[in-house]
């Protein structure tokens, strides 16, 4: 059990006309090495929730434990937590600032107080991991394409070697190719390094393809916390929260209604292909 949320509440601008109860009574456990998806409609509190995980936002009430320690303890070092729980914000390319790609990625490890060589080795590894070729390392980050910038920004977090990686909408605004590239790299990272990954997204297809477990947020509450297939089998409830199951799940349901004997708990195109072929061969 790596991260535990115990009755977390968060209220924005408390005591003013703009007061908003953004997070309500969240209980949650994230295990080491999990690949978790977090979905919810705009304004459901997803972004606020993940900012609690590395201590950027302090809960109004409740406790958070990381590796067994209460992060709100007086002598808990929040900066150390932030190096272990890497958070990639939405549109992370907007935070690039250095004169070269290499220096920008190097910023995180340098802040950790590592010696120069170690920091540079980590930078080197991180850039390799996200597939940014050496020819781009001396370029200004502002000269890169949108997808490349985003990968550099993600590398900036990876270079800190976090134990948990949280990504907030890492594919927003990318073309399908860029989207697949990034998700594929994240998936490889998960398999090879055993890093815990939390993926926040709007795209049901993204979560269906990669994650084992889904958390569903609605109006500040955690309303579902179940394996991927179970969550998507409850798509009627998801629709009420302005969410949906992957499109392919709807196709399978429609086929079933037309009298084909196919399973309806299908969430990826590949599974659907196999299932339909099986039915046709009968």
């Amino acid at each position: 059990m790596q991260i535990i949320f115990d009755k977390i509440n968060y209220v924005y601008s408390s005591g003013t006309a703009f007061e908003r109860h953004a997070i309500k009574d969240i209980n949650l456990t994230i295990h080491k090495g999990e690949f978790v998806g977090l979905i919810g409609h705009t304004g459901s509190g997803k972004s606020t929730l993940i900012q609690h995980m590395n201590g950027l936002i302090k809960a109004t009430s409740g406790h958070i434990y990381f590796n067994g320690l209460d992060i709100y303890d007086q002598d808990y070092k929040l900066r150390e937590l932030r190096s272990k729980v890497g958070l990639v914000f939405q549109y992370p390319e907007h935070q690039l600032f250095e004169t070269s790609v290499f220096k920008d990625v190097n910023y995180g490890p340098k802040n950790l107080g590592l010696d120069k060589l170690e920091a540079e080795v980590r930078t080197y590894e991180a850039l390799k991991m996200v597939g940014i070729g050496e020819e781009l390392w001396d370029a200004s980050p502002f000269e890169l394409s949108g997808g490349q910038k985003r990968r550099v920004a993600i590398a900036g977090i990876l270079a800190m070697k976090p134990e948990v990686l949280i990504l907030d909408e890492p594919t927003a605004g990318l073309d399908p190719r860029g989207r697949d590239d990034i998700l594929e790299q994240i998936s490889v990272l998960h398999k090879e390094s055993g890093m815990t990954i939390i993926l926040v997204t709007h795209s049901m297809e993204d979560v269906a393809n990669y994650v084992d477990r889904i958390l569903v947020m609605n109006q500040g509450s955690l309303v579902m916390d179940e394996p991927t297939k179970t969550v998507f089998s409850r798509y009627k409830e998801l629709e009420q929260m302005h969410l949906a199951a992957p499109q392919v799940t709807y196709i399978m349901n429609a086929l079933k209604q037309e009298g084909f004997h196919v399973a309806t708990d299908i969430t990826t195109v590949n599974e659907a292909k196999l299932e339909i072929l099986k039915e046709l061969k009968k």
Partner: peptide, 13 residues
């Protein structure tokens, strides 16, 4: 606010 948080997540002080 957003950029500040993003840089704090990268260990900025």
């Amino acid at each position: 606010d957003k950029i500040m948080k993003a840089q704090m997540a990268r260990g900025a002080d």
